[in-house]
Design a binder for these strands. Structure first.
Length: 266
DNA sequence: GCGACAG
DNA sequence: ATCTTGTCGC
């Protein structure tokens, strides 16, 4: 039997496409959760009486400029009502897989899955009911971006949030910009991303008042686009929704401190 | 053939 | 993704 433990030959885009198509069969594109989304007009009594969404997770990965294979992943959990961080976990690893457009998940999903598994196995009381991922879901060349990939692996409702558009089905940054500038969309802060094929890939959202640069929201897993949009809006104190913004900030701080403390003991 | 291409 | 301080404007 050949030793495949150090074999990189499976890391081809052909095989990656097969994996994406296989996992895609498990994808759920509608609301599939037991909790409800609390609205701002509900009293605190009503919120506590129902089984409302309480804990939202956010994940992000940061890198060292000196060594771009050194990565720090953060999973933060925020209170859905206050958006305060109630929990955080980190992991620092060497990534072996390069970033290839369209295949981000093969680089980043394993370390993210590890963080979720760590919390789940310890039956942590703040284990998230929903996850927001820094990267696209359905909005992807094969309709299976990082947010879908992580969602299927950890079997949680997931929303994908991109800060830049991955050009797909005729959709480009400039075409989206033109749509926002069109007079019939003058007052809109949300635009449905319909490709030239007629397919709906997600939504472009100007998440803060008067902002020009949208974020790109798409289905990850076990949630509809409408619910995804509602929840992302709920979480936006700034352009990037709070769970992802906090994961981004805190993963950068963590890897900087890790850099300092690891070179100290050499 | 050329450019585009989440993080 | 990452390099990077102050600064211009509401």
């Amino acid at each position: 039997m050949m030793d495949h433990s150090m074999d990189q030959s499976e890391h081809t885009t052909e095989n990656w496409i097969n994996v994406q198509e296989l996992l895609k069969q498990k994808l759920i594109l509608e609301d599939c959760f037991t909790w409800t989304i609390s609205s701002p007009d509900m009293s605190s009594v009503e919120i506590s009486r129902q089984n409302n969404l309480k804990f939202i997770g956010g994940v992000d990965v940061s890198f060292l400029k000196e060594d771009p294979s050194m990565a720090c992943a953060a999973l933060v959990v925020v209170d859905a009502e206050t958006l305060d961080v109630v929990h955080e976990v980190f992991d620092v690893v060497q990534l072996q897989i390069p970033y290839v457009p369209g295949f981000l998940a093969f680089r980043e999903a394993p370390i993210l899955q590890g963080l979720l598994d760590k919390m789940k196995q310890s039956a942590h009381p703040f284990y998230p009911q929903l996850l927001m991922v820094d990267g696209n879901g359905l909005l992807h060349p094969r309709g299976f971006g990082l947010a879908c990939h992580v969602g299927v692996l950890v079997d949680l409702p997931v929303i994908g949030v991109g800060k830049n558009l991955h050009h797909v089905d005729g959709l480009t940054q400039s075409s989206v910009r033109k749509l926002f500038e069109a007079k019939e969309n003058n007052d809109k802060d949300l635009i449905c991303l319909v490709g030239k094929s007629g397919r709906v890939w997600g939504a472009a959202m100007c998440s803060t008042h008067g902002s020009t640069k949208p974020i790109y929201v798409s289905i990850g897993h076990r949630i509809s686009l409408d619910s995804s949009i509602k929840i992302v809006k709920m979480c936006c104190k700034f352009r990037v929704p709070e769970p992802i913004r906090q994961a981004d900030i805190r993963s950068r701080i963590f890897i900087q401190q890790f850099k300092g403390s690891s070179s100290m003991h050499k």
